[in-house]
Amino acid sequence: MGIRKFRVWRGDAAGGELKHYEVEVNEGEVVLDIVHRLQATQEPDLACRWNCKAGKCGSCSVEINGKPRLSCMTRMSTFEEDETVTVTPIRTFPIIRDLVTDVAFNYTKARETPAFAPPEGVAPGDYRMQQIDVERSQEFRKCIECFLCQNVCHVIRDHEENKPAFSGPRFFIRAAELDMHPLDAREDRKAYAQEDMGLGYCNITKCCTEVCPEHIKITDNAIIPMKERVVDRKYDPLVWLGRKIFRRDQLEGAVDSSVGRVHAEEPHEGVHWGRPKPAPQAAALGEDGHMDLTELTFNRPAAASPFGDDQEFPLPPEGLNYHHKDR
């Protein structure tokens, strides 16, 4: 297919710019191939995140000609031959370097979302569900967490100040999945979605559905049903009256907000390593201030271990404390 023109955003938190390149493109290639060729031939320190190259890991989210896309699933044949292809990092999250952003916001929101609560008196292994009861939720399990929906949502893309109050489309499908789950015992999912996740911020402009590489109908099948469920609970006087008259609010569905709500500030009980966790180590930088990541010239086999270089694997079993709180 010949030589094609590219613009790639290069930079970090201190600033950056779109740099122009001319790169060879072959038949059948995708944008990620071109980024890799750029790394191999012209820019060895160009940072990009990728993993499976099959549209299933959700790592290589970037914006291509301004549209949020997976770079491994965007074929070069979809562009005109004389078209300059612009590749930029996803905009909604803090930049780390070049095409890599810090998507920690999403993991914080994931931790805040209450997990599946099994029904009382049913032991793990005894859960039984009918297919027609779970198939609605199964659509949402296709999510690969590429966070393109989170990136494109204008509520946080254009308004950084909304981030604390708004969880984003990816977590609305999680909320809907659990609220529709036939065995989930929590009754406060609707209240949680409205009050803590910021469901009301969504104005149904459907960009999340447009960009979803798994074609999940995020708006129609998750957000709107959740909005309707919130209306059931909060804004429907008929439902409200029914609940008051039949005292259903005191029988089933009574919200106990003190149970199980996890917030980011709660201490996270993870694996106990048997010793203090080492602080993250700064990477060795070259004279140009960039990491020397080319394997041929790097003085170590790989980047520093996050567990400390003196740690051997497998870890000594007596130092580990994997346990289930019920056992």
């Binding site: 940072a47 999250f93 803090p94 780390i96 952003t101 700064a282 930088l285």
Partner: peptide, 14 residues
């Protein structure tokens, strides 16, 4: 910025 920097609040976007 390096990949080994600790996350902190309100870091700039690209």
């Amino acid at each position: 910025t390096t990949t080994a920097m600790r996350p902190s609040k309100a870091r700039p976007r690209a």
